[in-house]
Design a protein around this nucleic acid. Structure first.
Lengths: 341, 341
DNA sequence: GCGCCGAGGTTTTACGTATAACGTCTAGCG
DNA sequence: CGCTAGACGTTATACGTAAAACCTCGGCGC
């Protein structure tokens, strides 16, 4: 029984109802709620309107406002799956910046279990001002590009950026840092545990790894796994059992894979990091929850989302689309150590 | 250069533009796009309208539709923090059911870093049909209750449900299962590692734990920590070092806490589960990533979200609000073992 | 005394859609 | 052959808001 008295439980009051009750015109109510009333409405009147509105429980109808203004202050964020902590953090960053500018963010979790979503604009019922598209394959990109909404790509395929504003994470450099760290520790037999889905990110990472190894006498093999602990463990176990020289350094495309790899090692009686060094990617909560804590490439997930939203707001403001790349940083913890002699 | 030809890069075409181009009235276009045209528009005409619309790149304006219909097919989901995998999964479940019914879901991450959000209805710009509120403290509840939107509570304070539809997880029973499991293993010295914030969930859990221990000769102490691995480790380490009989069973309110506790144990030279049994809550990805894998109370997070959204849709359909409780299940893994003699 | 100006409003219109109410035309039937 | 009943559309209107354009009136300079 707290809250404003909403005696008439009927339909929600409109600005006209408030106007009538306060003895002013609808336009005046609109002015007062539009924050642009200085000099146009007397302070006394404005105050009267506000208290009347409060008594009636009035709230501006957003659908009507959006229609009238022709914009919604709402952005769509396209992500593969929110259950991945990385994307949850991207969302958090994007939503923070959006909120600071009076924008809302609605999500479109693209391929993942969201039922018969025909396209983003059907499933997210909200009317949109712009789109922030993260890690999108080129086919999904086509769907989106069909629409003429302002678009910012997060970590897009360089081949497919299409002149849209883009924010990238310097994944390649992260791979380089991890690899050089391992080289410096004396490792020469590398195994690359990659995320399962074929994509351009795989190419970027593989190339960076290969480049870093060029000119050394180190060798690398590649194995793929789905992005789950279990699948990573299975894949890593098989790879570590394979004939040939046993890898001493395991470079993983994700902390989840790294965690699975550590379990595989333990099953095989290998100690991490004494017998096998492991690196991850992302620096998730997971990275410091497992033992040993993971050496990993930290991606600035929140800043990524913030930067993307900032870019989108800039584009909506008419500024020309930019392409930015955010640096990443290797965090050295307990899962890497000098190669055993 | 794929996608429909959007030659005129001007303002988006409206149903009137399509009508003009197709030689019909605006009403007809509206009928065709409204899926209710059977018997009212000839198939030939409908097809012509559709192709014209495609050529022009027409999309119905959702703001206008929402205004006209007086509903938005959009629900708000209030969660503490998406970076918590549990809530990300709740969202996923809710969004799936919503999508199946043509609804969208917009998020309001309540207390967590989302800047100067005055209230949910400001920050999530979308016009709403209803609210799904998860784990809300009573003060935030008041804010929401001030509005007269249909509301479904997820795991609400039983004291504050206010006749709204509610979906609960049987947390208390989960606690009971974990406790009885440990009792059966012979444990008698319990430590309860609880989440930091004071809340009704703490009371529910403590009481269930106490109830399960009643009539036995077991003792329990309680320690609180923030919901991070690090803080949990610190708190657990201090508690395990404290004077008095050393606990052999550590019941944690969350898998994150359990992971931290395992690290604390290892630091103190205690083996899990031989010297110390640990249980968690939620069954996150984390639970099987750490070693040993955590015995934990699995919460059906997706089903929780699905059920909540189903309830909300029912309420929006005019059905009377129900209160349901979903069962939870103890998953026994490697972090619990018989108490050492 | 007249014109002008600014403060403080009001009237009116448009945003794009959905739908109730209303034509029209053809075919069928007694 | 006149009347009626669909089938197929169209006209007109309302949803709630924002803002451009327009009023009114008191004061003030000359």
């Amino acid at each position: 029984m707290a809250g404003p008295q909403h005696e008439a439980a009927g339909p929600r009051p409109t600005s006209r109802d408030v106007a009538r009750a306060a003895g002013v015109s609808q336009a005046t109510v609109s002015l007062v709620f539009g924050d642009k009333w200085r000099g146009r409405v007397a302070e006394r009147t404005a105050e009267r309107v506000r208290t009347t509105a409060r008594e009636l429980g009035y709230r501006p109808n957003l659908a009507a406002r959006n229609l009238r203004l022709g914009r919604t202050r709402t952005a769509l964020l396209v992500v593969p799956a929110l259950t991945n902590e990385f994307f949850a953090r991207v969302y958090t960053g994007a939503a923070r910046v959006a909120a600071e500018h009076g924008f809302g963010v609605v999500l479109y979790p693209s391929p993942d279990g969201i039922g018969p979503a025909r396209d983003p604009f059907d499933s997210s019922r909200a009317a949109l001002d712009g789109i922030l598209a993260s890690s999108i394959a080129s086919d999904a990109l086509a769907t989106i590009q069909g629409d003429e909404l302002p678009l910012v790509m997060l970590d897009s395929d360089p081949a497919g950026s299409l002149g849209a504003a883009t924010v990238n994470l310097d994944i390649g450099d992260g791979m380089r840092q991890a690899t050089e760290h391992l080289l410096a520790l004396g490792h020469r037999e590398f195994l690359h545990l990659a995320a399962g889905v074929d994509s351009w990110t795989f190419d970027v990472r593989s190339e960076a790894l290969a480049t870093a190894l060029r000119g050394t006498d180190a060798a690398v093999r590649t194995v793929r796994a789905l992005l789950t602990v279990d699948d990573a463990r299975t894949a890593a176990e098989a790879a570590l059992r394979a004939p040939g020289p046993r890898p001493t350094a395991l470079v993983c495309d994700d902390d989840i894979l790294a965690a699975g790899a550590c379990k595989a090692a333990r099953r095989l009686g290998l100690r991490v990091p004494e017998d096998l060094s492991v690196t991850g990617f992302d620096d998730l909560t997971l990275a410091t929850a497992v033992e040993p804590e993971l050496t990993t490439v930290r991606l600035p997930a929140e800043r990524f989302g913030e930067h993307g939203m900032t870019s989108l707001l800039a584009v909506l403001d008419g500024r020309t689309p930019r392409t930015d790349t955010l640096p990443v940083e290797l965090v050295i913890r307990g899962s890497t150590a000098p190669a055993a002699r």
